[in-house]
């Protein structure tokens, strides 16, 4: 069968290519993979995104947290993981798998204990000041690292005239070796939400999929098969 099939132009991006694109993307825009409250991320920059702490009564400055994903590795159908992908996930045609590592960090031990001698609590208002790293005291950081596998599918965003961009949507996440099951489900829910949100801003223009070769007004695709994302169109 011809590459162009019933159309006149074809572009195929191999999974090695998409991974090079993702590496290039996240190297200079790491902030899409690193989020944290002020304790972990003092200010937003290209490397990390500052978020609000999670407000909670009697936790000074709120709950300090951070989430960081490693640069994900994408595997287009067919499965090329060599058996690495958890058996709970199935990679079908027009789907992709995604493998990454997720690190969730929390500052623990920052609970205010009411004390008549505490001169900061006269008005009973929560202290909005974030914890100072030097005044960290007995509090400490807990980190958990998760090996994350996900199944997703391509998402196209059209900008008119057959142009647009390619992104990804996450359909399911699998964490390995988490017990009990409710905890695993809870974490999978959390990480799927975070990962999907992190990937929303990853959009590769159709033009990049073919490295600028020829012109292509999209008629078909992207279709995922043979370890490639394929698009078909006319010039």
């Amino acid at each position: 069968m011809s590459l162009t099939e019933a159309e006149h132009v074809f572009a195929g991006l191999h999974e090695d290519g998409i991974n090079d694109f993702l590496t290039a993307f996240f190297r200079v825009r790491r902030h899409h993979l690193r989020y944290g409250s002020s304790f972990f991320v003092p200010a937003t920059n290209a490397s990390e995104t500052r978020m609000d702490a999670i407000p909670f009564p009697n936790v000074p400055g709120g709950i300090q947290w951070a989430v960081e994903f490693a640069i994900p590795t994408v595997d287009f159908f067919k499965d090329s993981s060599g058996g690495g992908m958890p058996s709970q996930l199935v990679l079908d045609i027009n789907h992709l798998s995604l493998h990454t590592r997720c690190v969730i960090s929390l500052v623990c031990g920052l609970v205010r204990v009411r004390d008549h001698g505490d001169d900061r609590g006269h008005d009973d208002k929560p202290d909005d000041k974030p914890p100072d790293r030097q005044a960290f005291g007995s509090a400490h950081v807990e980190r958990a690292v998760f090996d994350v596998w996900a199944i997703g599918h391509p998402v196209t965003r059209f900008t008119g005239g057959g142009s647009g961009s390619l992104g990804f949507a996450i359909d399911a996440v699998e964490l390995v070796d988490i017990t009990p099951d409710p905890l695993e489900s809870l974490l999978e829910c959390l990480i799927q939400t975070l990962l999907q949100a992190a990937l929303v801003d990853v959009a590769l223009p159709f033009r990049s999929l073919r490295a600028g070769a020829f012109s292509l007004t999209l008629q078909r695709g992207p279709e995922i098969e043979d370890d490639q994302a394929k698009v078909y169109g006319t010039t």
């Binding site: 006149h8 132009v9 195929g12 991006l13 191999h14 090695d16």
Partner: peptide, 8 residues
Amino acid sequence: AEIIAAVD
């Protein structure tokens, strides 16, 4: 190849 582009 990582990227293949073809025209008929």
